[in-house]
């Protein structure tokens, strides 16, 4: 066998080994203890929101975040973007061509398969058994991969801190010792926010659409987006018109990375086998060539 034919054979062998390993590797995603039965959620009925921002004030208070100087509503106050110190906002949304703008609340969606949890190299973001995506600041290294990966643009960085910045995002108020639901839902005066089991809320959302089809779009935002989220939205306007990303895949984003990452053990095994045989074989060939040269 010459060096060239050996190389050809070994290439075929390597590709075969990789293919076998790829087939054998299991495709499961980060297993969380959360199940459909244990997951909590919040239903946001956009049609019932009056834009009073009581939820924002309650959130700031419960979580020790800075309150705006002047209490405002969406009708008399400035646009408030999410940032490190503001975990939820209500702002007017909607293109004027489709009617008057309506107030829409934004906060972390608490994905069922969170991209942030899957990308964090130190597990500073974790999913609790009730589905809440919790941030553990004592682990965080500030790499900002969660911000990069989040399909909803939720995690925010403490840019002003010099050596000890943290990530700021809605924790569903589950970081407090006694958890009775998020402060925003408790503060809502109109019932636009309803806290409960995600399963029950999804059923209720569908029932509301069924009873009042003229009032609601036939779309519960968060049922399938990015594999589903704990926060669910009902609206009379199309969600893309309200600034929601409606182009997201219907599966959990971590799957996209895991497709590649799950191959690591197989690739290692395949390379060990192939490289060992290549090295051994090439050494033999080199020896033979040396003997041949001498004679």
């Amino acid at each position: 066998m010459t060096r060239r034919t050996f190389l050809r054979h070994s290439t075929v062998g390597a590709l075969g080994a990789c293919a076998v390993c790829a087939g054998v590797a299991d495709g499961s995603i980060a297993a969380s203890a959360a199940t459909d039965a244990t997951r909590i959620g919040t239903l946001v009925d956009v049609t019932r929101c009056i834009g009073c921002r009581a939820c924002v004030r309650a959130c700031n208070q419960r979580n020790g975040l800075p309150q705006p100087e002047k209490p405002s509503t969406v009708w008399n106050g400035p646009v408030e973007e999410l940032n490190f110190g503001r975990w939820t906002t209500v702002n007017l949304q909607g293109t004027p061509a489709n009617g008057a703008a309506v107030p829409v609340k934004r906060q972390c969606m608490h994905c069922l398969e969170p991209a942030c949890v899957s990308v964090c190299p130190v597990a500073a973001l974790q999913q609790l058994p009730n589905g809440v995506v919790m941030y553990r600041k004592e682990r965080c290294i500030g790499c900002r991969y969660c911000m990069f990966a989040c399909p909803f643009g939720i995690p925010k960085f403490e840019w002003e801190a010099s050596l000890d910045p943290e990530i700021g995002k809605c924790q569903f108020c589950a970081q407090h010792a006694v958890f009775t639901g998020p402060a925003c839902a408790q503060a809502c005066p109109t019932g636009a926010l309803k806290f409960g089991s995600r399963q029950a809320l999804l059923a209720e959302a569908k029932a509301r659409i069924h009873v009042r089809p003229e009032r609601y779009r036939d779309h519960v935002y968060g049922e399938h987006e990015a594999g589903g989220t704990a926060w669910l939205y009902l609206s009379s306007r199309s969600f893309s018109d309200l600034g929601f990303n409606t182009q997201l895949p219907r599966f959990g984003l971590p799957r996209l990375t895991w497709v590649a990452l799950k191959l690591v053990p197989g690739v290692v095994i395949a390379l060990v086998i192939v490289l060992t045989s290549v090295s051994f074989r090439m050494g033999r060939l080199a020896q033979q060539a040396a003997v041949h040269d001498r004679t």
């Binding site: 995603i29 980060a30 949890v117 899957s118 990308v119 964090c120 190299p121 130190v122 597990a123 682990r139 965080c140 290294i141 500030g142 790499c143 900002r144 991969y145 960085f157 403490e158 801190a161 050596l163 000890d164 910045p165 943290e166 971590p254 990375t257 895991w258 590649a260 990452l261 690591v264």
Partner: peptide
């Protein structure tokens, strides 16, 4: 340098999270 908390650069080596590409790279 790019880390918000450079002094914690060693965290990934201790706090394994094998679903993270960043962990694998580190």
């Amino acid at each position: 340098l790019d880390l918000g908390r450079p002094l914690r650069f060693w965290h990934p080596l201790v706090m394994w999270q094998h679903h993270s590409v960043m962990f694998e790279i580190t």
